[in-house]
Design a protein around this nucleic acid. Structure first.
Lengths: 333, 333
DNA sequence: AACTGACGTGTAAGCGCTTTCATTGCAGCG
DNA sequence: CGCTGCAATGAAAGCGCTTACACGTCAGTT
C-alpha cells in the first residue's frame, strides 16, 4: 500500500505538504503542488480513509439508515440523496435498520461510528423522547418522515395535509361525494396529517367522512385488500376510495377483481406515493406522487450543510409538496 | 467521545486488556473480563472504527457496489446479503456505481478504501482484462452476474442456461410451438446463456427459433414495448413470447393492450426475474424467478469466507437455479 | 529449593494521516 | 542595511486502537 510518506519522498517534500496538496491545494506553491500531484498520480496513491478519519478530517460522507433496501420507496430516496451528494463530492453510505426501536438506534450509532459527517434517519419506532436525546447528541443528523417538536429545522417531510387535500380535491372535482379511505396506522403522524387534510377538504366541500367508511390498515398490500373487503361488507355506498399508499391500493384492486367490481366505472381508486408498481397496475393507478428523490437529495444536502456550514442550511426546504398523477383509476361521474 | 483509555481507567486495567476483552475475550481472566465489560457498558463505550481500521484489525464489513439503489433487482440482492451477514455479525455497506467502466472501478476502489474485508461487485462495463487485474489485486472480492474465466470460484451466477430451459419447457409443455423472444443486450454473457438454453430446449423438442422472431432489446420497459411491436409487424405467427426480464414483459403487455391483443388467449407471455411488479400486472405475470436474496446472501458469505477462512468457501454454491412461477400470463393451447 | 511453562497483564511501538507551531526565505519598508 | 511581515514548508505531536514483546506469578516439575 502506497502511503503519503512514499509520495512525499518521491516528490521531495514533507508529508505535511502532501496533505496540504490534497486538502487545501490553494495554500501551496504552484510548483510544489504540481510535483506532488504528479507523484500522487504516478504512484497511484489513495489516502487511507481510516487514517484520515482518525486524524480528524471530515469523512465527506453522509449516512442514511432505512429499513430494508428492497423497498421501492426508500430506494428512490437513497438514489436521490446519493446523486445529489455525489455532485458535491460526497459519498453516501446506506445502512439497513434491524427491526424495532433497538435496531433503529443501532443503525444510527453505527453510522456515527463510521464517522459520517451527517446522518439521515427514518425512524418509525423510536419515541420522541429518545429521538430528541439522540438528535441532541448527534447534531448533524436529520429526520425524514417525522416531525419532531423542537427540531423542526432538522426534519424533512412531505406536506401530508396538503397531499391529502389534493387527493380529496381530485376526487371531488371528479364528482365523487361518497368517499371511503383506507389509512395507514393511525399512530403515524403522517397518517394523522393525511386524515386531517382529507377531512378538512371534504368538510369544506360540504361533505363529510363517514366513520364507517374509513378503515385503518397497515400499508401492506394484504391489509389494503382486506380493508376494501370490509368496506364492501358495510353495504354502504361509496364511489371512490383513497388509499394511503400504492401497495394497499393494489391490494384493493385485487379485491375488486375478485368481486367483479370495475375500476373506475364502479369504484374509483386513488393511491399514494407513486412507486414503481403504480403505473403497472390495471387500470393504471391515479396516485399522489411524493417527490422521493428530491426529498432524499435535500435530506442529504441538509445534513451536510448542518455539519459544515449552518448558514447554508437555511435555504434548504424542509417540507415538500405532493402532486396528483392522473392515470386511469379515477372516473369522472 | 469516550475512548478505550477511559474504559481502562475505569476498570483499573491497561488499554491492551480492554482491547483483548473486545477482540479475544477468551484469553483474559474471567474476573477482569467482567469488570471491563461492566465499565464498557456503564460508559456506553463504542470502539472507534477508524482507529480500529488503522491499527489493522479487520473491519467486519463487506461492501457491495451496484448501479442505483432503486432497482428492485439489486434491492433484493442487497437485502439478502445484509441479512445473512448480520446473522454472523457482519456489516454491509452498499455503494452506488456511477455509470460506465470508470464508475464501476471507482466504486470498487472506494469500497476497498473503506477497508471492507470483502467486496462484491456487479460489473457490466469493465472488460475481462481489467476485471482480472482487479480481482487479482483484491483477493477477496467476488463477482455477481458475471463469469470471469480463471476466477470461476469467485463468481456467483444464476444458471441462465437452465433458467431459459425451464422457461422454454414451460411454454412447450403448454402446447406452444411458435415462440418469440425478446432478449437483453446480446453482449451480456447471461443473455447469451439464456438464448442458448432456450434454443437448445426448442431444438430438443423438434422446434426451432425463427430468427425473425427474436428481437434484441435493452431490458427497459420501453424496449420491451417496442420489441413486441416489431414482432407484430413481421406478420409472422407466434403464440408465446419469452422476455428476458419482467420490465420488458410489462412493456410487452402494454403493447398488447393497445393492439387489443388478449393475454394469454391470443399471446402468452413469460417473464424473467420475478420482481415486485410481476404479480401486479394484469394478468399476473408467469415468470422465471431468480433466487435474488439467496444470491445476495451467498455472495456476502462467500466474500467473507474468502477473506477469513478460504476452506469454508468451498462449501458455498456458485451457481443458482431458477424456477418458474406460474401465474396467469401463459395459456395452455 | 531452584527451574520451567503457562497464564494474565502491562508497556510501548506503530497504523497513515492532519494540524499546530516553528522555521526559513524573501519582498518591502524606513 | 537591518527590520517586519508574509508566504511556503517542515518537524512533530497526536487521533484511538492493536499487538509484539516483556514482565511478573504461580502451579507443577526435578
Amino acid at each position: 500500500m502506497v502511503t503519503m510518506l512514499d509520495v512525499s519522498r518521491k516528490a521531495g517534500v514533507s508529508t505535511a505538504t502532501v496533505s496540504r496538496v490534497i486538502n487545501k491545494p490553494e495554500i501551496v506553491d504552484e510548483k510544489t503542488r504540481l510535483t506532488v500531484q504528479k507523484a500522487i498520480s504516478t504512484l497511484d496513491y489513495r489516502p487511507n480513509l481510516f487514517a484520515r478519519g482518525l486524524a480528524g478530517r471530515s469523512s465527506h460522507t453522509i449516512g442514511i439508515a432505512v429499513n430494508g433496501f428492497s423497498s421501492p420507496y426508500f430506494g428512490l430516496v437513497i438514489d436521490g440523496m446519493e446523486q445529489a451528494l455525489a455532485r458535491v463530492g460526497y459519498k453516501t453510505i446506506a445502512e439497513s435498520n434491524r427491526r424495532g426501536a433497538e435496531g433503529e438506534r443501532e443503525a444510527w450509532l453505527s453510522l456515527i461510528e463510521r464517522r459520517c459527517e451527517g446522518v439521515i434517519i427514518h425512524s418509525a419506532n423510536l419515541s420522541d423522547e429518545e429521538l430528541k436525546h439522540l438528535m441532541q447528541q448527534h447534531p448533524s443528523s436529520v429526520l425524514i418522515n417525522r416531525l419532531l417538536p423542537d427540531f423542526e429545522h432538522r426534519c424533512i417531510n412531505l406536506d401530508n395535509f396538503h397531499a391529502a387535500e389534493i387527493a380529496a380535491k381530485h376526487l371531488i372535482d371528479n364528482g365523487h361525494r361518497e368517499i371511503a379511505v383506507i389509512t395507514g396506522p393511525k399512530r403515524n403522524f403522517e397518517v394523522k396529517d393525511r386524515i386531517n387534510g382529507f377531512n378538512f377538504t371534504l368538510n369544506n366541500a360540504g361533505l363529510k367522512l363517514d366513520k364507517d367508511l374509513t378503515i385503518e390498515a397497515d400499508f401492506s398490500g394484504l391489509s389494503g385488500q382486506e380493508g376494501l373487503e370490509k368496506l364492501l361488507a358495510t353495504g354502504k355506498k361509496f364511489t371512490a376510495v383513497f388509499f394511503h399508499n400504492d401497495e394497499m391500493a393494489a391490494g384493493g384492486m385485487e379485491t375488486c377483481r375478485k368481486a367483479n367490481i370495475r375500476i373506475p366505472e364502479d369504484i374509483s381508486i386513488i393511491g399514494f406515493d407513486d412507486v414503481a408498481i403504480a403505473k403497472h397496475l390495471t387500470p393504471k393507478l391515479t396516485t399522489v406522487r411524493q417527490p422521493l428523490r428530491e426529498i432524499g437529495a435535500t435530506a442529504g444536502l441538509l445534513a451536510r450543510a448542518i455539519a459544515n456550514n449552518p448558514n447554508d442550511a437555511d435555504h434548504l426546504p424542509r417540507t415538500f409538496q405532493a402532486e396528483v398523477v392522473e392515470r386511469a383509476s379515477v372516473a369522472r361521474i
